[in-house]
Design a binder for these strands. Structure first.
Lengths: 80, 80
DNA sequence: AAATATTTGTACGTATGTATG
DNA sequence: GCATACATACGTACAAATATT
């Protein structure tokens, strides 16, 4: 799974979709650490700001919790 | 009083503000011991480096004096 | 004198927050 | 959207100074 820059959907939404799917299918379990921005940048070839934007989106949706200096984790209470 | 990680003000400044206020209203009197880093960490749930940064800020302002192995104390001469 | 506990000092690695070009 | 730089923060480990036993 990678980012398609020719798709209509902006990269940060694509990336959010990828991670959201990993959470929904249990690849990323509640409480588990979500790959850091640096990892996402390296893995998907996006800019850090883009990775952040994707994570912020997932945070607003309730899929993850973000804490400075600590990292991003999958929420214990996933949205329905 | 606790730390709000969503506030615009960074935690170390918030913590400094809390202690500064305790000094100004006499809760912490001149010569008295300021809670150790370990205590601040436990009480406010911040990292030790963050507690230290707050104390160093108060030291630069003249509110406290810091001494290795001895602890932090409220200055005898408080700033105006 | 010596061992132990407490406290501050320093350093490293890693992560997020924000601002600028 | 990307690249870069800097600020802030967490965790951990060890060093140094002081106090206590």
């Amino acid at each position: 799974v990678s980012i398609d820059y020719d798709a209509g959907l902006p990269p940060y939404r694509q990336l959010a979709g990828i991670i959201r799917e990993q959470i929904r299918n249990g690849e990323l379990a509640p409480g588990q650490v979500v790959p850091s921005y640096a990892m996402l940048v390296q893995t998907y070839g996006v800019a850090r700001v883009t990775a952040r934007k994707a994570i912020k989106l997932l945070e607003s949706e309730g899929y993850v919790t973000v804490a400075q200096g600590w990292g991003t984790h999958v929420s214990d209470q996933l949205p329905s």
